[in-house]
Simulated scan of single mutants.
Amino acid sequence: MNRSVRARMTLLYGGLFTTVTVAVLLAALILQSWAVSAALGGRGGRTCAGPECDAPPPQPPDDVRESVLTSQRLILVAAVAVIAVLAFAVCWWMTGRLLRPLHRITAAAQRLSLSTLHERLALTGPDDELRRLADTFDAMLDRLERAVDSQRRFIANASHELRTPLAVQRTALEVGLADPSPERVRLIRAELLRNTLRSERLIDGLLQLAKGERGPDAAVPVDFGRVVGEVVGRQRDAGVTVSSAVRTATVVGDEVMLSQLVANLVQNAIRYNVPEGIVRVELTGDGTLTVVNTGPRVPPERAVELLEPFRRLDADRTGAGDGAGLGLSIVAAIARAHGGGVRVRANPDGGLTVRVDLPVQPVLSSQAS
């Protein structure tokens, strides 16, 4: 009861209203007794002794009775008026005090902008509905601030990644064509082609990330085991050993996006590996896809950072020079769009273990039989 604003308001207002009503009615009764005594000449409170006290008291005349009734009506009307005025005044005052946190929440929402996302209500007091509402508002601001910071980093990183190949191409053209010998032209051509391919891969990665964030247009049952098997079967002559253990699992979603998820995981495990390394792909019947690879050591506390766009940890993971840092980000986006999640763990001997959990479609009893 003490955690409910409604209960506290009911008890508080009911107690105040009862107290005010009793006080006013007691005053009204006192005033009424005084009026009756005055109207009847004070006989009501007089004592007597002797035979005359055995006689019945004289009946008051009609004008006296009418005067008493009139006084009673006036006192009751005055009492009701006083009760109404006091009740509305007290309720107005108490409601304003109790709803003051809502005014703070409203004011904070009205001044909310990108420059005020760091502000918090930090409401104190009992753990009631208003306190929980303020805490929920603060938690929403925390998530919004993280999302805005992530978007800012994404824009800055994307701008840097797109500007780098353009700057290289411009330098190659300006410096290389200053003395356009045939040999230099061939070098410039190769450099321009390499940077153009890098830009294409980056743009393709950004498009895939955007599609993953948007989610599938039409969700249909997909044989996820078949998709995993086809992707693993296409990995040949990679310089590493790729093995798999795939079971049947039906996932509701988009087959193309799910295929992209598996391909990004497997290709990422192959790219960031060691010569003659190992990649292990496992799919369980409950929709859990696990990809384990050997490779350079990754700090355990920084492994989760690889799920962020354009995040590269060190030179060992960028030595190939053909990645845009979007592979695992696309995997995480596609997994979230399909109602799942991704967990990344650094292996003690090097490499990563990436686990993708996707909700599977339950098998009907008729199909199982």
Rank of each mutant, 00 (worst) to 15 (best):
residue 1 M to D: 12
residue 3 R to A: 08
residue 7 A to I: 04
residue 7 A to K: 05
residue 9 M to L: 15
residue 9 M to A: 12
residue 14 G to I: 06
residue 24 V to Q: 07
residue 33 S to K: 06
residue 34 W to L: 13
residue 35 A to L: 13
residue 36 V to Q: 13
residue 44 G to V: 02
residue 46 R to N: 04
residue 49 A to C: 12
residue 53 C to F: 09
residue 53 C to W: 10
residue 54 D to Q: 14
residue 56 P to M: 14
residue 60 P to H: 02
residue 68 V to H: 04
residue 71 S to V: 11
residue 71 S to N: 12
residue 73 R to S: 14
residue 75 I to P: 11
residue 79 A to T: 11
residue 80 V to E: 03
residue 82 V to T: 14
residue 83 I to G: 07
residue 88 F to T: 14
residue 88 F to S: 05
residue 90 V to Y: 09
residue 94 M to Q: 15
residue 97 R to P: 01
residue 98 L to Q: 06
residue 99 L to D: 11
residue 102 L to D: 02
residue 103 H to P: 06
residue 109 A to I: 06
residue 110 Q to V: 15
residue 113 S to Y: 03
residue 121 L to T: 10
residue 123 L to G: 09
residue 124 T to R: 12
residue 130 L to Y: 09
residue 130 L to T: 03
residue 131 R to N: 01
residue 132 R to W: 08
residue 137 F to G: 04
residue 139 A to G: 09
residue 147 A to G: 09
residue 148 V to M: 05
residue 150 S to P: 04
residue 151 Q to Y: 15
residue 153 R to E: 07
residue 156 A to P: 00
residue 156 A to W: 09
residue 157 N to L: 12
residue 161 E to A: 15
residue 175 V to H: 01
residue 184 R to E: 00
residue 185 V to N: 07
residue 186 R to F: 03
residue 186 R to S: 14
residue 187 L to Q: 12
residue 189 R to L: 10
residue 194 R to K: 13
residue 195 N to A: 10
residue 196 T to H: 07
residue 202 L to S: 07
residue 203 I to N: 00
residue 206 L to K: 12
residue 207 L to H: 10
residue 208 Q to D: 15
residue 208 Q to G: 09
residue 210 A to T: 14
residue 210 A to K: 10
residue 214 R to W: 10
residue 217 D to M: 08
residue 218 A to R: 15
residue 224 F to P: 00
residue 227 V to T: 14
residue 229 G to S: 10
residue 231 V to W: 06
residue 231 V to P: 00
residue 233 G to A: 01
residue 234 R to K: 09
residue 235 Q to W: 04
residue 237 D to R: 12
residue 238 A to S: 13
residue 239 G to N: 11
residue 248 T to F: 08
residue 268 N to M: 13
residue 269 A to I: 01
residue 269 A to H: 06
residue 274 V to N: 03
residue 276 E to I: 01
residue 283 L to H: 15
residue 283 L to M: 13
residue 285 G to Y: 05
residue 287 G to W: 03
residue 288 T to G: 01
residue 292 V to K: 11
residue 293 N to T: 02
residue 294 T to F: 02
residue 294 T to S: 09
residue 304 V to S: 10
residue 306 L to E: 05
residue 308 E to C: 05
residue 309 P to Y: 01
residue 312 R to S: 14
residue 313 L to W: 05
residue 325 G to D: 08
residue 325 G to Q: 15
residue 331 V to R: 08
residue 332 A to H: 11
residue 332 A to N: 13
residue 333 A to H: 09
residue 335 A to G: 00
residue 339 G to E: 05
residue 342 V to Y: 07
residue 342 V to H: 12
residue 345 R to T: 10
residue 346 A to G: 03
residue 349 D to L: 13
residue 350 G to T: 09
residue 351 G to S: 03
residue 360 V to P: 15
residue 360 V to S: 13
residue 366 S to K: 07
residue 368 A to V: 06
residue 368 A to H: 08
residue 368 A to C: 06
residue 369 S to R: 15
